[in-house]
Design a protein around this nucleic acid. Sequence first.
DNA 1: CAAACCGGGATCTGCCATTTAA
DNA 2: TTAAATGGCAGATCCCGGTTTG
Length: 388
Amino acid sequence: MAAVAGVRVLLHLHLHRSAALQCSFALFPVQLASTRLPRRLCTVTGKISEAKLVVHSENESLLENLNLMGVDVKMARQRQPGVFRKVITNEHGLAQFLQTKGASRKVIASIISRFPRAITRSVDHLEQRWELWRNIFKSDEEIVSILDRSPESFFRSSDNKNLEENIMFLTSLGLNSKDLHRLLTTAPRTFSNSVELNKQMVEFLEDVCAELGGKDPEQFAKAILSRNLYIFIRSTKRVKKNIDILKAALKFSDAQLLALLQGPGAEILDLSNEYLKKNIKSLQQKMVLLGCRKSDIKKLIVTYPMVLYIGTETLNSKLDCLLNGGITVQQILEKPKVLDYSTQNIMGRLEELQRVGYDFKKHGINILDTSRKRFVAKIEKLSASPDE
DNA sequence: CAAACCGGGATCTGCCATTTAA
DNA sequence: TTAAATGGCAGATCCCGGTTTG
C-alpha cells in the first residue's frame, strides 16, 4: 500500500524530466488513469512550483489516508477516477464528521469506497446537508444507516438549496411527516433529484388525472405518491408507458383506469415496461389456458393488480401448485390474495391441510391467506378435533 | 368467537449515459 | 477536456395482524 504512494512520488520526479514518462506508466498500470494530471499541472504557469508542492503532498496523503482508513481504493478509483486527481480533498473532515454522527470506521470506509466523491465535500456543507436530512429523520443513526445502504443518495448532489426546496415542495404536496420519512427511507434518491424533476412527475400525474376526466388531480397525484414511494425515482416516460400498456392490453375505460391507478394499481406503475408487458401477456395466456374469460382476467387485475408484479415463472408455478392442491380457478379469482404468499409457503400449507382433510369446497381458501401464527393455530385446532 | 377484510411493513441500489460547469 | 451533476435503467414479493363482520 505504501508502495502506491511511492509510485506517486516517482511520477512527480519524472514530471520534471518528461522523457521517461511513458515507460514509467507502463510499469504501473494502476496509474494509467491519471495520465492527464501532468498536462494540467504544466499549464499552470505563475504559481507552478507552489501548485506542484501542494499537489504532491495532497495526493500522496490522499492515497495513504484512504488506505489507512480501510477504503477499497481499487474499487473507488474504478468508480470515480476523477476524485483521485483532485488537488484538494477532505477525506479527513468527512471521516471525522461521520464519526461524530456515529458511523463506524467500517461504514465510513465502505461509504468512501462506493462513492468516493463524498470526500470532496466540505464539513460546512456536510453539516448543512445533515441538518436538512434531520428535518425528516429523528436520529443520526437512521441517517447513517441510509448512508451505509446508499451513499450515493446522500452525496451525489452537492446542491443543498435544491434539497431544501425539495423538502418544501414535497411538504407542499400534502405529504405528512410520516410520508416524508417513509419516502426518504425507502427511496432516498428522491431527495437528490432536482426539484424540477420531481415537479414534472407530479404535474405529469395530475395531467393523467385530468385526461382521464378526474375531478381532483392533486388528490390523485397524492394518492399515487403515498401508495408508491418509488414513483419519484422513476421516469415519467416509464410511468406513462405503463399506463398506456395497461390501457391498451385491458381496454379500460377512463373511469376504470382512474380508479385503478389511484387505488391498488399505483404499485404497479414503476415496473419496467417490458416486464409489465411480459407479465400481462403471460398472465392472459395462462388464464385462458385455464378456461378463464377476458373479463375474468380483467377483474383479477382490477381487484389484485399485484398479480402483475409476480414474475411469469413464479406465478405459473404458484397457480399450478394451487390447482394441483385441489383448488379451482374460480376460487383463486375470488380470493387472489392467496397469490401473495410464496410458492414454498403455499405448498407447505396445502400439505398440512390435506393431512387434516381440509375441504376447500366447504371452507374456501382464505385459510391460505393468513399469518403463519394464525395458520398454525388453526391447524392445531383442526387436528385436535377433525370434525368437518 | 372465528373468519374475512384490509392495509401496512420490509424493501431499492449501483451502474451507465448524458448534460452542465469549470 | 475533465470532472461533477443529473437522469435513467434493470431487477421483480412475501408476510403480518388490527379491525370488522357474521
